[in-house]
Design a protein around this nucleic acid. Sequence first.
DNA 1: AGTATTATTACGATTTGTTAGTAATTATTT
DNA 2: AAATAATTACTAACAAATCGTAATAATACT
Lengths: 146, 146
Amino acid sequence: MDGQDLKRRMAEFAGMCRQKGVIATHQRTEIYRELAGSSKHPCAEAVFKGVKKRIPAISLDTVYRALRLFESKGVISRCCTIGDRARFDADMGSHVHFVCTRCGRVLDVAGSAPSFLKAPPEAAAMGAVESVRVEVRGRCGRCGKK
Amino acid sequence: MDGQDLKRRMAEFAGMCRQKGVIATHQRTEIYRELAGSSKHPCAEAVFKGVKKRIPAISLDTVYRALRLFESKGVISRCCTIGDRARFDADMGSHVHFVCTRCGRVLDVAGSAPSFLKAPPEAAAMGAVESVRVEVRGRCGRCGKK
DNA sequence: AGTATTATTACGATTTGTTAGTAATTATTT
DNA sequence: AAATAATTACTAACAAATCGTAATAATACT
């Protein structure tokens, strides 16, 4: 995620908020920026720490509220739970995650074939599919070297 | 899961415990049986309630400890988190889950094509893959009829 | 078999992630 | 600029999960 990408994401954020009736306050904008500017799929606490550098008076509670609001409006997604902390992702496009079972890092798998992101027909027969989540678990490169 | 299947699973459990140095105590055996005998992917509390019928004095803490131990030894897996409760699965084979976003049910998707359970090559390049988890989210048949 | 040793269980108390109530603050409307 | 509505920050609460520990059960040893 370079500066250009982030800029585009922030513009999209403003548009989504307008469209979905979410007031893009200063705090919420910075919370989103923290999430969109990171490739770490951070937990609420990590987002809080990051935003705090720019808005020292922000409260953890506001971060939780904003993340929950964003999620309910489809602006971000709760991508997985590592340990017992929920991790978030500003990228709403279909993609695969690599989750390291040792260090807990969540990495984006670039350019995954679309076949991995379609629901199998047997699942489609079970109900109305809304989304498909593919998570590859294993030991990441950094943890691999024992 | 019929009686025959459960019986086979319990035998496999004994073998896995022996192999992995886990003492198969009475409590642990019943905890595993509760999980393997259910197709509901229960949370810790639900396992506790089930086992309690057979071992009234069992404590919730013992259930948590056993589930954590089993997970760390690869005997069971924590399949997902619904609401804020972790759900568990005794089936360690690759399979797809259908998670109902309305009622929280977690259903097994039978007979999914193996292509859905293979890691994409891009992911395999990122580290040592241990498992692939596919979660289809949507409204289940029961919740579908409004 | 009986004793020593080690591991597990149950209990209670704690910790921790997350949510809720509310007064003060900020943004929006008139 | 005053009034109205929404959001924020604070504190407290809640619930899932964990930890310390004494009692208990299981294993190893002789």
